[in-house]
Simulated scan of single mutants.
Amino acid sequence: MNESIKTPSVTDEASTPQMKTKCEHHAECMKVIQAILDDQATEAEKDHFRENIDKCIPCIESYNLEKCIKTSLADKIAKKPCPKNILNTIISKINS
């Protein structure tokens, strides 16, 4: 018999926190995730996120997906200054 395989005991399972497979507050969590990724989260939101992220599979997956999308978009979008003539045209239209 292979002795490296350990069967978890009842006390091991009781001490290991169960991961949630369904998030009861997913809409609220998504708002917090967006605020965190946009660097606009309050300390209370950050604390809630830190506590929740280790226990909730949907929140972990949503955070990773949103972070990946944000990073991909930032890498793909070239930041170019607006040409001066276009800027002047826009400003004149706004002021008229």
Rank of each mutant, 00 (worst) to 15 (best):
I60A: 10
D39L: 06
C59G: 01
C82P: 05
K70S: 02
S92Y: 05
D47K: 11
C56Q: 02
S4G: 09
L73Y: 15
M1Y: 14
C56V: 05
F49N: 03
A27N: 07
Q18N: 12
I36E: 00
D12L: 01
T71Q: 02
I91R: 13
I90G: 01
Q34E: 15
E28P: 05
D38A: 11
D54Q: 11
Q34V: 11
I57E: 00
A74Q: 09
L87C: 14
H48L: 03
P8S: 07
N64D: 03
C68D: 15
A27E: 03
K55I: 03
E66K: 13
K55L: 12
T7F: 14
N88G: 03
S92L: 01
K22V: 04
T21V: 10
N88I: 03
D39Q: 10
D38C: 12
P17Q: 11
N52D: 15
P83I: 08
N95E: 08
K67Q: 15
E61T: 01
K22N: 03
I33C: 04
V32Q: 01
D47M: 06
I90A: 04
K55H: 13
H48D: 07
P81F: 13
I60E: 08
K79G: 00
M19H: 10
D47T: 08
I90R: 02
I36F: 01
C23M: 04
D47F: 07
N85C: 07
Q40C: 10
P81W: 05
L65T: 08
K46Y: 08
C23A: 09
K31H: 15
N95K: 11
D54K: 11
L37F: 09
S4L: 13
N52T: 07
A14S: 06
D38Y: 10
A44R: 13
E45K: 10
K76S: 06
M1K: 10
A78R: 09
Q18A: 04
N95I: 02
H26M: 09
P58L: 05
K46D: 06
E61L: 01
I94R: 07
D75A: 13
Q40A: 12
T7D: 09
N64E: 02
E28S: 09
L73R: 11
H26R: 03
D75H: 15
E28Y: 13
L87Q: 11
P8W: 08
N52G: 12
L65R: 14
T21G: 04
I91H: 12
D39Y: 11
K79S: 04
S96W: 12
T21K: 09
K67Y: 14
A35K: 02
I77V: 03
N2S: 09
K46S: 03
K84Q: 11
I36N: 00
E61K: 10
A14W: 13
N2R: 04
I77C: 01
S15D: 06
S9Q: 05
T42E: 05
S15H: 12
C29T: 00
I94E: 06
Q18D: 09
D38N: 15
I91S: 12
T7W: 11
Q40W: 08
T11W: 04
I90L: 01
D39K: 09
A74Y: 06
H25C: 14
L65G: 09
